[in-house]
Design a binder for these strands. Structure first.
Lengths: 351, 351
DNA sequence: TTTCAGTCTGTGAACGTTCACAGAAGCGAC
DNA sequence: GTCGCTTCTGTGAACGTTCACAGACTGAAA
């Protein structure tokens, strides 16, 4: 395994061929006829480089095909040029939520414009979390982007102790003042949907919420209650776990407990898809007997029958703003304020 | 921007507090009463370390909270300890396919066991591709994992020239012998579905394929043709683009051209969901008038109405095997053979 | 002419590892 | 006692950058 397959060859300027090793800043300097320092200055566009040197270095870089070695750079600057996205779901459930895709895609793209790369890690169990902490403490990331972190996650405290720039996509319950975040206005979105259902003349409106330790779970319920006031009785509230199956069984429980309901606001499209199955199984017509409202406007909202009336979150903008906050912190901002973005009601045939 | 906010503090051994800087291998050596070399040997578990030293070093590492600096290590070993996953879709379409999620999750988990981290990059346009090449040539990844790379992608040639270990999740058309891959047996899966439709007594079976420059697009069509022989007339073949909408319009075109069809094999569940919409719009009942078969067994297959009969791919195993191949190459294997995994027919109500 | 400020450039010393080498210590065989 | 082998350890020299410093060169002002 330690087999030294061919010792290192000295970086001679191969007279009749190409160099064996990747060119270093020394090679560039030699070709350009300047010193390391000047090349470095061009690389980091410092001031005080003469136009002539600048041009010579640029030419030499192109000629040699030089690429800066980030390891060497990081070693001295103590900056890694990368950011780690931490997925704090138990392994099996990660990505069950199709919204992840949008967020990851957007984050990568946004970071790429600054030449920052994105490392993805899981934090589903203690081993994972320890790995994340080790990685971050090892200085391999300039910042952390938390995804769907639940209330009380020990990782948050650990990161806080390390004092590394960290932000969340969606609030971390109980840490709203510690971990900056960008999020859709879940509460107002839930109000929009509930108001709409009321406006359509529905009288007994139930809800299926997400888990109460997630911001979407809590705040969408709060918005629901905001509109209905004391009419939001416990009898009409059921909890799900963001999965399709969870939505299905929650709907079944609701139907058993409150057979007279005529509408249900489901806190995610995926759960709403499950709820539709349960309703169909119970012989209720949608929307004639029961109106169903979802949340997210994810792809699944279009593939259900009937297509779901739902609340659209500006997912891309949420992701963009989250990255933006993180970059600001990395750049040294002392404090940044959370960003809350507006939602839209999308009416389709399920209501 | 170059503001030097506080110079570096010397690493004095704070008499009354903790050290300001992260401990280095020197600190560990000092605490353990050995030299750098010995600590390094313990870290890389070389032979020839006395039990006493070994224990002392282990204790010192725990005591100081030492974490190896990968940058410094990479600088000398020329190994990065990370792998880059390249998503070769145009930006908008990335992740449209829900299968990505499974693959990413599995890959991360599998790599984590070897303490290799996963960087994700896009390769949707030339700028992206150039970034990937620069990253890889800079020595920041030990290997590349290609996702959904289309035929003729210039990135493949570029990576080939760099001679970096590279594998693909699903074959890269035209490069099957250059880029090792793991994949589901698309062709046989398509045969399973087609045979099944024939067995159900369907006579005029159409298909909606994926793009012809993707392996799933080509091979699922081939499997379809394998079973139907010359009955697979051009009239009954229509091409989609893996999206829901693409499936919908392809179905509409098919209905116009061949109103007498009584079954359709759609090369992905997402497109099949679109096809269902088109059929419903045309007043055809599923499965009474037209049987619909999908492919993937993704989440969407359950949320359509009726739920889709489909072909399940062992996605997790595909991802695992892909990572496995890559790790083998990184470990120095000269050649590795492609891995083809079997598919299953899942019967639901759409047929 | 001298002085000074402003530009520009080169150089040594880090950064935190690993690697190759040299050598010490222990032990058995001659 | 010496030799040789094995096991173990310390040390200097990389790896490829950036950073701080010192100095050289301009041109204008005194």
């Amino acid at each position: 395994m330690t087999g030294s397959s061919g010792g290192r060859r000295a970086a001679g300027r191969g007279d009749n061929g190409t160099m064996a090793k990747r060119p270093t800043i020394h090679d560039v300097a030699a070709v350009a006829g300047v010193s390391r320092g000047t090349v470095s200055r061009v690389l980091n566009d410092d001031r005080y480089v003469s136009p002539a040197s600048h041009a010579a270095v640029r030419r030499a870089i192109a000629e040699t095909g030089y690429i800066v070695n980030r390891n060497a750079r990081s070693l001295v600057t103590q900056r890694s040029g990368s950011v780690v996205m931490v997925l704090s779901e138990p392994h099996e459930k990660v990505f069950e939520d199709p919204n992840y895709s949008t967020t990851i895609r957007t984050a990568i793209r946004r970071l790429a414009t600054r030449d920052v790369s994105l490392v993805i890690m899981m934090a589903g169990d203690d081993g994972d979390r320890e790995r994340v902490v080790r990685y971050v403490r090892g200085g391999h990331a300039d910042g952390v982007l938390l995804m769907s972190t639940h209330a009380g996650d020990p990782l948050v405290d650990a990161l806080e102790a390390i004092r590394i720039p960290a932000v969340a996509c969606g609030a971390v319950i109980g840490k709203e003042n510690v971990i900056p975040y960008a999020a859709a206005n879940d509460r107002e979105g839930a109000r929009q949907m509930t108001r709409y259902l009321v406006g359509r003349g529905r009288r007994r409106i139930a809800t299926i919420t997400g888990p109460m330790d997630t911001p979407g779970g809590m705040q969408r319920l709060e918005g629901f209650a905001d509109v209905l006031g004391r009419k939001a009785s416990k009898r009409l509230i059921e909890h799900g776990d963001w999965t399709r199956l969870g939505g299905e069984s929650a709907m079944a429980r609701l139907l058993e407990r409150a057979p007279d309901l005529d509408a249900v606001f489901v806190a995610s499209d995926l759960m709403a898809a499950g709820a539709l199955s349960a309703l169909r199984a119970a012989g209720r017509r949608v929307p004639e007997d029961v109106a169903v409202g979802g949340f997210d406007d994810s792809a699944v909202a279009l593939s259900t029958h009937p297509p779901l009336t739902t609340i659209r979150q500006p997912l891309e903008r949420v992701a963009e703003e989250t990255v933006h906050l993180l970059l600001a912190l990395i750049d040294g901002a002392e404090r940044v304020e959370p960003v809350i973005l507006p939602t839209d009601l999308i009416v389709r045939e399920s209501t």
